[in-house]
Nucleic acid binder design. Structure first.
Lengths: 337, 337
DNA sequence: GCTTGGCACTCAGGACTTTCGAGTGCCAGC
DNA sequence: GCTGGCACTCGAAAGTCCTGAGTGCCAAGC
């Protein structure tokens, strides 16, 4: 009974604090939310909540502020993800449907996410690692120079140039093309790489060997795994206070794509919304920022992740809804494409 | 005589102010720089410089601060571009030589420039407009689906998929390939586009028409003209004061690539270092930021621009040296590649 | 046993004042 | 034309006071 009210009080504190950015006191709380009790009662509840570590006072004689633990409880048990308004849904559809290729989808998503949440948005480009080989093309630019094109199921196209030791005729190119395609087509790239390597005895330094090397290299190229798009950095300007403690490290992190990748977390299958609050994250300097992220990708597989980064004091229900909605829409797009 | 000393005083004021970020007074000036005169004399000079609009007082009883006009004079007549130290030169060479492709060159340049100047760096990807066609490749993925690959002299590779109305045999593909290459090879893309269009009568909706359409579209695709890489946003954290007036608009500008392009200015042939100080730029909100930019590209042509954006109170000689050095090195790289 | 009104207490932040000193402009003398 | 001297100005820092929001606790009430 009281337990329930206490949680209601915590919820009210979080909501008020997120809205006003100021510590919230017992009186204001009773006024703004229709809790049917007196301020004194709320004070007792607050004292209890503070004992349990959900809220804290910046200083005596100030209101209360949620702790990371408080936000965690709020996210886990006290809030429901706000459904997007139909206008927002329409905006998502309109903007993303206009995309012309994979890169454009990613860039539009990041803008969209930043706009919807008014936070910094981060979208990882689809990784190679889960994708399958759709086609391998070999083009003889000159008799000793081959353009190798690798097309993956995510729509990514990788191309490499290979210089050959000896001249190669058109027929030989065609043969080679069908050989590598037979070995790799439809496989996820890790398997494709092994299959390709099996094609050629180690001592073979001729055309096949060279092409396979290049393909394997392209498949295991982790540069593209680390590609990331960032948007909405201007939203950092709204931080206002706590500039040094919060904005500076975040601004630095935004340039370190490795850091961002780690923040987004591991891609997991299925639709899981990850919320990392303050100190829960891997970086101490970012202990006053939270991350809301999820995986996306065609079908049930998560090829990559996207999400937002903002102050712990953020609108979690809204952010979670936006992240989920964008991820769903992008996934659907990839499914079709 | 006095004229000369006055300029020396202005130079000293700029240098001190850039170093300390604080208004500089007559006494400190005489102490730190070996001007052979008394503070009183310097005060007279300062009064004159103020009358002419080169410096100003934030308030009575504070030191002087250079105006935009003062910086302009400093840049034009009072400073020499600091040569880069050999360590810096080596750093530039090492970092840029490690690049594996065009995109990587751009990304490394932007990081490097940000690091060298400790400002926000901006590098425009080489534009299509001046580049020539190095090769066009057609690949039949299926009998009705063609991969069109356009390779340009800048190293940029554009690819498009074309779905055909009718099936196309290998021979026909080979024919088509040699036709389009004969028309476009070596031409700058504007001419190549016209030549290609001339190949095909307007009513032709068959393979040739479809392929030419796609090529022309790829050549006139202005998306890639607007591509830009930004780095060193974390350096904005050092602004410290004047957050709202300076950092916020800049942070917003960094997301608007159109704005950044306009800041970088027009690409001009030859090696010209452009310095835009404060209000001289096209955006009023950015009136307390300066831009140092220059063109780069293989040979004498400037394909694109790169530069840095920072507070008007910046180290111009150092920034100019870094921008020029990086542009030169990148140009040389493009020349070879 | 929870809730409530009452009350004394705390303390951050704003308003106001004072002090300090860097820096100025001007003038008379060299 | 340079210099030393001097009176003056005024922003920034430090100190002081005051107010009010908010608290914790207690005794009374439902």
């Amino acid at each position: 009974m009281q337990e329930e009210r206490r949680l209601a009080v915590l919820r009210a504190i979080v909501e008020d604090y997120v809205a006003t950015e100021e510590p919230v006191g017992s009186k204001a709380l009773v006024e703004r939310h229709g809790l049917g009790v007196s301020p004194a009662t709320v004070r007792n509840d607050m004292a209890a909540l503070e004992d349990e570590g959900y809220i804290t006072q910046p200083h005596t004689s100030a209101g209360r502020v949620p702790t990371d633990k408080g936000y965690r409880l709020f996210v886990d048990r006290l809030s429901t993800i706000k459904p997007m308004s139909s206008a927002e849904k329409r905006a998502i559809a309109t903007i993303l449907d206009g995309a012309i290729d994979l890169d454009d989808v990613v860039q539009r998503s990041v803008r969209l996410l930043a706009q919807l949440t008014r936070q910094v948005a981060v979208v990882q480009y689809p990784t190679l690692s889960r994708s399958t080989v759709r086609h391998i093309e070999l083009v003889a630019l000159t008799p000793t120079r081959l353009l190798v094109v690798l097309i993956l199921s995510t729509g990514r196209v990788e191309q490499r140039l290979v210089d050959l030791a000896a001249e190669l005729g058109d027929d030989e190119v065609a043969d080679l093309r069908s050989v590598v395609n037979r070995a790799a087509l439809g496989e996820i790239i890790a398997d494709a790489a092994t299959a390709l390597r099996a094609l050629v005895p180690a001592e073979d330094a001729a055309a096949t060997g060279a092409v396979v090397d290049v393909l394997v290299e392209a498949m295991s190229d982790h540069r593209s795994d680390e590609r990331i798009a960032v948007g909405g950095a201007a939203n950092l300007a709204r931080f206002g206070d706590s500039f040094d403690s919060a904005v500076r490290p975040l601004l630095e992190a935004l340039e370190e794509h490795v850091v961002l990748l780690k923040l987004l977390g591991e891609a997991t299958a299925g639709e899981v919304l990850t919320v990392r609050i303050g100190h829960e994250g891997p970086y101490q300097e970012l202990s006053s920022t939270s991350v809301v992220a999820t995986g996306y990708g065609p079908g049930d597989e998560a090829f990559a992740r996207l999400g937002i980064v903002g102050p712990t004091r953020m609108d979690y229900p809204g952010s979670m809804a936006a992240v989920r909605a964008v991820a769903r829409y992008v996934s659907r797009l990839l499914d079709e494409g």
